[in-house]
Write a protein that binds this DNA or RNA. Structure first.
Length: 424
RNA sequence: GGAGAGAUACCCAAGUGGCUGAAGGGUCUGGCUUCGAAUACCAGUAGGUCGGUAGUACCGGCGCGAGGGUUCAAAUCCCUCUCUCUCCGCCA
C-alpha cells in the first residue's frame, strides 16, 4: 500500500511513478477526492465530539446542584445523532479510500528500466555455460518417467492435470534438494528456519498484497475462510505483522520450506508437460525485514544467496532485472534467476528476488523503532525463492542426464542421497 | 463439536454508567543519598494513531481483544466475532 501522506504531498510524482508500469488508470484522482473529503468531515465531527466531551463532564456537576438537565439532554441528543451520521460518512470514505489504495501497485524503484513486459528485462550476469550434448537430450518428464521416478499419469488419476507423483529416488531427490537448500541458508547464510502454516487467513493474504486483487489465482477453503498459500512469503512475512521490532533485531533473515498452491488460471496451455507449472509445488523461500537504508544492499545479498544454490549444484543460470511492465504488484525491484533448461532451449525462471520497500510493511503493519524517543517506522520487506524445488529437480535431470537415460547427481547433493552418485 | 472461565498499558492488576480524559504495584528512566553502589525516598513512565499544520512543541479526535448497538454520557449494559485457558468428545 502506498503512503497516503506521500500521495498528498507529491501527487504528480507518485502517480507518474506508478504509471511507469504502463497499463491503465490506478485511481489516483479518486484518492485525492476522498482524502480531501475525509479531512473536511473529520474537522467537523471532531469539533462536535469535543463539545460532547466538554458538556458530558459538566453533567454530574449540574445534577449535583439539582439543575434540570432535560433541555440540555434534548440538545445533546441532536448533537449525538449528527456525530453518528458524520462518523458513518467518514467510515464509508475510509473504507473506500483503503480499497482504492489496496488496489494500487507499488512504485517501481527509479533504477528499474521502463518496459512493457519480459522482453524488456535486462540481463545482469550469466554464470556457467549451457552444456553441449553429443546425443539427443531428453526433456525431464521423459527422463523422469524413464527412470520411474516421476509419474504424471497416475497423478492425473489422483488429482488431474498439473500434479506430479514423485517415486523412489525421485521423491528422495526432491527431499534432498529441500534439505540442501535449507542447510545452506541456515548453516552458512544466517537465516532462521521457519515451518509455517500452509493455510492462512484473509488478513495475511492482504498483508503481502495477494488480496484483494488476486483472489482468483488462489485456492480457497470456504469452511474456514482460509487460503492455501501460493508462496511461503505470505506466512513468513506476516509472521511479524502488527509488531514493532527492536532495532537490534534487524535485519531479520527467515527461510522456510513449504508447498505452494496456485490455480495457474491464466496459464492454460502453457508448460503443460513436466514439473515447470504445477498446482502444487515445493519451494524454499527466503524473507528479510530490514531498515530502509540497507534494503537494496540486502536485495543484492539475497540474490547472491539464492544463486549460491545453483553455483554449488553446477547448473548454468543468468540473472535478469525485471522491467517496470513485468514487475509484480507489490515489488519495487525484482531480479529473476533463470536456469538453463535444455528441453526449452532457453533460460527458465527458478527464483524471483524482490524488494518491496515499505509496501507490504504498511499493509501488514510491520514496524521498527530506532530508539525509544523516535517514532516507529515501517521496515522494508524482501523475499526470494531459494529456490523453486520442482524446477531445480527438472534442471538437475536435464542438465546432468547421460546418453543411457541415467542422471548424475551433483556432488553437493550426494550426502543427502545416501552417497549415491547417479540415478539409473 | 459441547460446557465453563478469561482478554485492561512494557508486565501484574483494580475497576457494575458520570471527579476513571483508567487506581495501585512492578519494571525502566531521571533525581536525591553515596567515595562508589545497594536500600529508602522523590518524580516521570500511554504507547500508538488520525487531524489542525511543515514540526519530537501546542490543541483536538480515537483507544480497556475486534466490530456493532443502547444512552445526553460506555472499560462498565446488550449483540456478534476472534483468540487464550480448563473440562468433555473426536483424533495423527
Amino acid at each position: 500500500m502506498l503512503d497516503i501522506k506521500k500521495i498528498r504531498e507529491d501527487f504528480d510524482g507518485m502517480k507518474a511513478g506508478v504509471e511507469r508500469r504502463g497499463k491503465g488508470d490506478f485511481g489516483f484522482d479518486k484518492i485525492k477526492e476522498l482524502d480531501v473529503k475525509r479531512r473536511e468531515l473529520l474537522a467537523e465531527v471532531e469539533a462536535l465530539k469535543n463539545k460532547q466531551n466538554v458538556t458530558s463532564r459538566e453533567v454530574p456537576k449540574l445534577k449535583k446542584e439539582g439543575k434540570d438537565v432535560s433541555e440540555l439532554f434534548k440538545e445533546m441528543k441532536q448533537l449525538s445523532n449528527r456525530i453518528k451520521e458524520l462518523d458513518a460518512e467518514v467510515g464509508d470514505i475510509e473504507v473506500e479510500l483503503r480499497n482504492v489504495l489496496l488496489g494500487i501497485p507499488n512504485v517501481p524503484n527509479k533504477d528499474v528500466q521502463e518496459g512493457l513486459d519480459d522482453s524488456d528485462n535486462v540481463e545482469i550476469r550469466k554464470v556457467g555455460e549451457p552444456r553441449e550434448f553429443d546425443f539427443e537430450a531428453k526433456a525431464h518428464w521423459d527422463i523422469g518417467e524413464g527412470l520411474d521416478i516421476l509419474d504424471f499419469e497416475r497423478a492425473g488419476k489422483l488429482s488431474g492435470a498439473r500434479f506430479t507423483v514423485y517415486k523412489g529416488l525421485g521423491a528422495k531427490l526432491e527431499r534432498a534438494v529441500i534439505n540442501f537448500m535449507l542447510d545452506l541458508h541456515t548453516e552458512e547464510q544466517g537465516y532462521t528456519e521457519i515451518l509455517p502454516p500452509f493455510m492462512v487467513n484473509r488478513e495475511s493474504m492482504t498483508g503481502t498484497g495477494q488480496l484483494p486483487k488476486f483472489e482468483d489465482d488462489m485456492f480457497y477453503v470456504p469452511a474456514k475462510d482460509f487460503f492455501l498459500i501460493p508462496t511461503a512469503e505470505v506466512p513468513v512475512t506476516n509472521l511479524r505483522a502488527k509488531e514493532i521490532i527492536p532495532m537490534e533485531e534487524l535485519p531479520v533473515y527467515y527461510t522456510a520450506y513449504t508447498p505452494c498452491f496456485r490455480k495457474e488460471a491464466g496459464s492454460a496451455g502453457r508448460d503443460t508437460r513436466g514439473l515447470i507449472r504445477q498446482h502444487q509445488f515445493n519451494k524454499v523461500e527466503m524473507v528479510k525485514l530490514t531498515t530502509p537504508e540497507t534494503s537494496y544492499e540486502e536485495l543484492e545479498k539475497l540474490t547472491n544467496d539464492a544463486e549460491e544454490v545453483l553455483k554449488r549444484l553446477g547448473i548454468p543460470y543468468r540473472v535478469v532485472r525485471l522491467s517496470t511492465g513485468d514487475l509484480g504488484f507489490s515489488s519495487a525491484m525484482t531480479y529473476d534467476i533463470e536456469v538453463w533448461m535444455p528441453s526449452y532451449g532457453r533460460y527458465v525462471e527458478i527464483s524471483s528476488c524482490s524488494d518491496f520497500e515499505d509496501f507490504q510493511a504498511r499493509r501488514a503493519n510491520i514496524r521498527f523503532k530506532r530508539d525509544k524517543d523516535t517514532k516507529p517506522e515501517f521496515v522494508h520487506t524482501l523475499n526470494g525463492s531459494g529456490l523453486a524445488v520442482g524446477r531445480t529437480v527438472a534442471a538437475i535431470l536435464e542438465n546432468f542426464q547421460q546418453e543411457d537415460g541415467s542422471v548424475v547427481i551433483p556432488e553437493a547433493l550426494r550426502p543427502y542421497m545416501g552417497g549415491r552418485e547417479v540415478i539409473k
